[in-house]
Every structure is written in structure tokens, then in C-alpha cells.
């Protein structure tokens, strides 16, 4: 399957599972679909039959509220069963609105509280250096998340320890929960901020899978610095009325019109949707 096709399929899954659950975060998940497809289908060195191999690349979904995107990808890669997606946020299921490492195969770190992933990832990267392993650690962060002070403590740490095996991807959709990131607490000049902390920085269109892959295939960007790829994205990408509207951060469509438009734009047929709701 083409990677673009996979991305389309992932969006369908996210939408169906969230509507069925009446919960989860659709727009934040849609924002990072292409990033996850690039990582899981081209970049990450992981073996679904040997998930704990000590030489594997590590991936941390630091913006844990995009769990439905991660679960869909894990299912598509055959790491968890596709059927499990139907249990998202349901009674007795293991797939919650934030991913948990102790119960879900392929989830490296439990997240949900923002601003933890980078420190955790820096620890993994430092261990890789100490143990002479050549795995890489990828951390996907959101822009609002970068307002947490802990992110910058970790950024300083990673640069100081020259963790060139550490890669941050920022899902820079310019929105957070209550509004536009740069109206609430500006991150700009964002690239310069990372640079001044001692990181190598690249930027990419976060919905262009082949460009994302190109940028991640050229790692490390420099010899002795940690890497950050700023991915310019659109929150809610894929459903026109959600795109760039802060309120859709946590909302699930429920009016007839909203559902009609969403199904059409995502290419989901009504029957599949109704089945999914049962």
C-alpha cells in the first residue's frame, strides 16, 4: 500500500474509534498522522516479533493525547491486533485516551501528562551512548507542550551530553487547547530557540510523507548535537471544519451535518460508521 493510502486509512480508524468511544482527541491525532506513518513504515528500526530487542529504536509519543493515532499505526504494523481498536476507551479495554507502556505492546513510555517525553528520551539516549548501542530515540512533542519548563531542562541536558542519537519531532500545528500557541505563550523564534540550546534544527511540511522521510533519513544532522525536526502541521487535518479551530481539540463530532461532512471527507461509508457505533 502507498504510504499516503496508509495515512488515509489511519485517519479513518482514528475517526471511527473516537466516535465509537465518544472520547479521545481526533484533531490532535490527525495533526501527526503523516509523521507517524513515516516513522513506523520507513524510519524506526523495530521488529514486531522482537519488541524488546535492546538495539531497537525507541519512539515516545510525548503528546500522549494523540493515542488514537499511535494505536492505529501499531495495529497497521501488526504490533497490536486490529480488533483491539474497537475497545478504545471501552469498559475493560487496555487502550485509553493516553497510552500506557505496561499493558500495550509497542508503547515504550506511558504519557498523557505533557512535558515528560523528552527527559525520558534523553535518558534512553544517554544509556545508548554508555552502552555503545547505535539505536536512536524519537520523541514526538506538541507545540503547546514546549511551554513546559521541563522540555527546556531536557533540551539543555541533551545538548550538553551531545546526544546526537536523540531526535525530537515537533508537531507544530500552532494551536493548543484554548487558542493559538503564539497568542497564549509564544514559542517564537522557535527554530532559533532550539539552535541556541545547542540543537541541529530542520523544518518540514508535516503532512508531506516523503519530505518527512527524507529529513529523517539524513540523521544525525550533525555529529555532536541532538536533532529536532520542526514539522509544520494543521491541527485537525483531514476534516475541513476541524482544521485550525481550537475548540476541536477535544470535541467529537455529533451533529448530523458534522458527521455527514466528516464521513465524506475521510471516505468512510455510512454503513461502516453505523456498524462501528454499535
Amino acid at each position: 500500500m502507498e504510504l499516503e493510502e496508509i495515512a488515509k486509512n489511519i485517519r479513518k480508524k482514528i475517526f471511527l474509534m473516537s466516535c465509537r468511544a465518544g472520547g479521545g482527541h481526533i484533531a490532535p491525532s490527525f495533526s501527526c498522522v503523516e509523521i507517524l506513518v513515516a516513522l513506523y513504515f520507513k524510519i524506526l528500526n523495530i521488529d514486531k516479533n522482537d519488541l524488546h530487542n535492546e538495539n531497537r529504536d525507541r519512539f515516545i509519543l510525548s503528546k500522549g493525547h494523540a493515542s488514537s493515532a499511535l494505536y492505529s499505526i501499531l495495529a497497521k504494523r501488526g504490533i497490536i491486533e486490529e480488533k483491539l481498536l474497537d475497545t478504545f476507551c471501552q469498559r475493560g479495554g487496555i487502550l485509553g485516551a493516553h497510552p500506557e507502556s505496561h499493558s500495550i505492546p509497542g508503547v515504550e513510555v506511558s504519557t498523557g501528562s505533557l512535558g515528560h517525553g523528552l527527559s525520558f528520551g534523553a535518558g534512553m539516549a544517554l544509556a545508548g551512548k554508555i552502552n555503545n548501542k547505535d539505536y536512536r530515540v524519537f520523541v514526538l512533542q506538541s507545540d503547546g507542550e514546549c511551554q513546559e519548563g521541563s522540555v527546556w531542562e531536557a533540551a539543555a541536558f541533551a545538548a550538553h551530553h551531545k546526544l546526537n542519537n536523540l531526535v525530537v519531532i515537533v508537531d507544530y500545528n500552532k494551536l493548543q487547547s484554548l487558542g493559538r500557541t503564539n497568542d497564549i505563550l509564544s514559542l517564537e523564534p522557535f527554530c532559533d530557540r532550539w539552535k541556541s540550546f545547542g540543537w541541529s534544527v530542520k523544518e518540514v511540511d508535516g503532512h508531506d510523507i516523503s519530505r518527512i522521510i527524507e529529513n529523517l533519513e539524513s540523521l544525525p544532522y550533525t555529529n555532536n548535537k541532538p536533532n529536532v525536526l520542526i514539522a509544520h502541521t494543521v491541527k485537525g487535518k483531514g476534516i475541513s471544519f476541524m482544521e485550525n479551530i481550537p475548540l476541536w481539540h477535544y470535541r467529537i463530532p455529533n451533529s448530523k451535518e458534522e458527521i455527514e461532512i466528516a464521513l465524506k471527507e475521510l471516505g468512510i461509508d455510512r454503513k461502516e460508521f453505523e456498524e462501528g457505533r454499535k
Binding site: G23, G64, G96, A97, H98, E100, S110, T111, G112, S113
Partner: peptide
């Protein structure tokens, strides 16, 4: 906001 387990599906972080 969210005493106890009321954010049920958001899980233990919440």
C-alpha cells in the same frame, strides 16, 4: 478539576 476517577477514560495520568 477532575477529582478522583471522574476523567475515567483519560487514564491514570489524569
Amino acid at each position: 478539576v477532575g477529582a478522583g476517577l471522574v476523567y475515567s477514560t483519560l487514564g491514570p495520568t489524569h
